[in-house]
Write a protein that binds this DNA or RNA. Structure first.
Lengths: 342, 342
DNA sequence: CTGAAAGCGCTTACAG
DNA sequence: CTGAAAGCGCTTACAG
């Protein structure tokens, strides 16, 4: 613990020590170029000696803006949200912005409203929504148009209409589906979360599109929820016995499917190939290693921050920034047993 | 997008509409009891009609404190940190506090200093450090004593000496070790992260203590780092062929060990029992389901917030709040093959 | 119970 | 380039 004066030094203390007016100190802080070198040096010395630190509340009161951005997000315990948040935080910190988070995880109007009120009570510079679901969209809809706002999204999830950066999960799904088809599977089955719904998910669309493009039969989509054990149950109940390839909504769903296969004594990839989505850190550790699509969530967070920064600077409506996913092939996918068919 | 006046309404607008002074409006906001019912109602009506929202920057400027707490944490992408953050955020939101996060993930003095500077530039009400590693401890050491601060810790990690809440991972390790010994294993091996080091970890201590208490032989501790695949490598290289039970530092390490066993053709739990630590959501999905120790990280976050709240209220140095872990038995642990020995 | 007034720590026209 | 002064939106003694 450093010892400190009872009251933190203010701009007036600096001015006194440097023998200048408070206005000059303020200028040194905000626009050093306009101050003569002599005084500038004197002020900077005083700042260091006093350990002066600007009071952001006072700055915010004057300017109406604070060097702080708000992030509205779903459950930060989930891999995607956590990683995007990570990227935002890094980019923000580099730009000297602090990040405040507000979790919105259901559609209850009271919950959404109070969460937004809480964020808006602060003089934020801007807001980023991690718009992967409808709850965040609902929260974003309550933010006044005067507040600079940007969004991190995936295909089809950017329902707020705000400037955004996005991850092309539709492309990722096509890569995954194509990979399986190229291996010789007659078709590919799919476990989808939150399907059917009015948002739709790029990864489900991409899967369907790739099947169509290659004239593969389209099996019924198997619906599940986020919980891996629900995916396990859905796989056991709805995946046909002759399925040889399964493309999963995300890695956690894939892990549930892998568990289902193990419990049923079906070999992976011998009897069935399983492909996930996201490439979370544990994907490679699973037995067998999970073939999946790598999504650069942290990059998405950084890109969203750049979009917000442009918006804050009053730039023309910034273009969306897309991040390309890539396929990561590991042990869980292979050729079907009877691959040698015409 | 709601349409809004160019400038947000202030306390003066409310006062005008309600026909009272600004002082009265302020009182209604902060201490409604002292205002007569008639005026109070008038003010509250005006607040609603105007959509008035207090400007926290102005409040902070007067009081020197803002309804915002800062969280200093390690990589929020990791399960433990993310879950504690989660608990803090929930508790804070219920108390109408906003949460700001700053990630400190290495010991570089410049990094630590600038991270702390950034946090301190805000008129925070208080700070919580998720003190699971030395980097957060280093950051906490730079916070002036005048700032209310609390910590979320585990056994031995609370090196800052600040008021804290903690998770008794030493007890958890004893439960896990005892479980394995009670199953009939002659002894238990251990993969430890960050060992040996001057902090030490409660879970490693607890394991050692339980072995000693039961007069079991003490095999050399196998060192690994956080990455599951490193744990896999360490297990393959250093775990003796006759090991029948392994207690792992955390679930991710255990997953690496499970992978090592699979790659070596050793059956779990037939040939070797594996126990993890933390009970992350995927632990039950693994094949076989992972026996582990459940750690209530979110509860820890909430408890840390309570400790901070007491500190902010100027209460006597709050007592530490302990959270008990519990053993969760699943498929990865069982009796050794030759269990029927004296 | 209520109002007039000072002041929190800055920034920013306005003069010079 | 520099300083004196007003003001950002509140809270809080101080009188009454």
């Amino acid at each position: 613990m450093v010892e400190r004066p009872p009251r933190a030094p203010g701009i007036a203390d600096v001015a006194r020590m440097a023998g200048v007016s408070v206005a000059t100190v303020s200028r040194v802080l905000n626009d050093p170029g306009v101050v003569s070198e002599r005084r500038r040096t004197a002020v900077q010395d005083a700042i260091v000696r006093l350990g002066y630190r600007p009071n952001e509340a006072a700055r915010a009161l004057k300017s109406g803006r604070q060097k702080m951005i708000g992030v509205i997000t779903g459950n930060t315990t989930r891999y995607g949200f956590a990683s995007v948040l990570r990227g935002i935080e890094e980019a923000a910190r580099e730009g000297d912005f602090l990040v405040t988070i507000t979790v919105v995880e259901n559609g209850d109007p009271d919950h959404v409203r109070s969460a937004v009120e809480l964020v808006l009570s602060q003089p934020l510079s801007g807001i980023i929504g991690i718009e992967f679901d409808e709850f965040v969209t609902a929260a974003l809809a309550r933010i006044p148009a005067t507040m600079p706002t940007a969004t991190a999204a995936m295909v089809g999830t950017n329902r707020s209409g705000l400037p955004y950066a996005w991850l092309d999960d539709e492309l990722g799904a096509r890569l995954a589906t194509e990979h399986l088809l190229a291996l010789g599977h007659r078709t590919v089955h799919h476990l989808a979360v939150d399907y059917p719904n009015d948002i739709g998910h790029g990864r489900t669309y991409g899967y369907l599109a790739e099947l169509a493009a290659r004239d593969a039969p389209v099996p019924p989509v198997v619906a599940t929820d986020w919980a891996p054990m629900s995916a396990r149950a859905a796989a056991i109940e709805h995946l046909p016995d002759d399925a040889t390839a399964v493309f999963c909504f995300n890695d956690e769903v894939a892990m549930g499917v892998l568990r289902a296969m193990a419990d049923q004594g079906r070999a992976v990839p011998g009897d069935v190939s399983v492909v996930g989505f996201d490439d979370m850190p544990l994907a490679e550790v699973w037995t067998p290693g999970l073939t999946t699509v790598r999504m650069d969530f942290a990059g998405l967070g950084r890109a969203a921050f750049e979009v917000l920064r442009a918006t804050m600077a009053g730039a023309p409506p910034p273009t969306a920034r897309a991040i390309r996913p890539s396929l990561v092939v590991r042990g869980s996918s292979g050729a079907p047993r009877a691959a040698a068919r015409p």
